[in-house]
């Protein structure tokens, strides 16, 4: 999170003092990322050192005011103009946790997923309630308050999208694991007797089902064992019977 650029953006509206900057930052972002006044002054100190802001007298109550400089404005323009750096994705505890849960002794990865799904949905419920309120506020507000309400709405929706992505990824991971373990079970079962083509073909009529028709984008197919991994290309739906169907779909597509 760039406090530095956030402060510059606020200072572009005119000189401000430290705790005022803190309040304004929070009313834009709904206190989603609370700042303490110490962080604000430390950042202002660095900005001053770098020539991006200057001290600009005091207000009536004796607060030291800061003003943005031309160099600061240049830096702000360039910040708005350049995309946020995604070169090194931030560490994600959940991704690390699931990665570690794969094959971890005594860990039920499905339970790990469900516990997180519960918490994620719960957070989404909270954000959605707040959003419903923010939508009403946006309609009724004008001037500076409207600007803050719109900013807060955008931040909330970002949180909703983020939690939604997490929920979808969890659904996807669960169905991915289920498909992989079903495939492994089939492989184990078929390890001794070879698959008779007749048995495999018996499933073919199922191919015409809607999901089967859309489903198959075959990534790997191992004829000998009948192991097939397919990628639905979407984490949206989890289909219990999808494995059997897509397997036969992929198989018949191969023939």
């Amino acid at each position: 999170m760039s406090i530095r650029h956030g402060l510059l953006a606020l200072l572009e509206h005119g000189p401000r003092y430290g705790s005022q900057l803190r309040t304004e930052f929070e009313s834009r972002t709904g206190a989603t990322w609370p700042l303490n006044v110490g962080q604000v002054y430390t950042t202002l100190g660095r900005l001053e050192r770098d020539g991006m802001v200057v001290q600009d007298g005091e207000d009536g109550a004796g607060h030291a005011l800061y003003a943005i400089t031309d160099a600061g404005r240049g830096e702000l323009r360039s910040w708005f103009g350049r995309p946020v750096d995604r070169a090194s994705p931030p560490r994600d505890e959940l991704a690390i946790k699931l990665a570690m849960a794969v094959g971890a002794p005594g860990v039920d990865i499905r339970a790990v997923i469900q516990a997180q799904r519960h918490a994620t949905l719960r957070a989404m419920q909270d954000y959605t309630r707040l959003k419903a309120q923010a939508l009403v506020a946006v309609e009724g507000a004008d001037g500076e308050k409207a600007r803050d309400d719109v900013a807060w709405l955008l931040v909330l929706e970002q949180l909703i999208f983020q939690t939604e992505a997490e929920a979808r990824w969890l659904d996807h991971s669960e169905s991915r694991l289920a498909r992989l373990s079903a495939a492994a079970a089939r492989r184990a079962k078929n390890a001794t007797p070879a698959v008779t083509p007749g048995t495999a073909d018996a499933q073919s009529p199922a191919v015409t089902e809607a999901t089967g028709a859309r489903a198959a984008r075959t990534t790997t197919t191992d004829h000998g064992t009948g192991r097939t991994t397919t990628d639905h290309g979407t984490a949206r739906t989890t289909t219990d019977h999808g494995t059997a169907r897509t397997t036969s779909a992929a198989r018949s597509a191969r023939r």
Binding site: Q114, L121, Q125, D126, Y127, R129, I160, R236
Partner: peptide, 30 residues
């Protein structure tokens, strides 16, 4: 099956294989 729409609810009930496996309770959002 859309989490974003389920999030409008007071409670979210999770079904698996015909059983309720979990549910979120009413939140503090109010």
């Amino acid at each position: 099956h859309e989490p974003r729409f389920a999030a409008w609810a007071d409670r979210v009930v999770f079904l698996r294989d015909g059983s309720v496996v979990d549910e979120t309770l009413r939140s503090q959002a109010d």
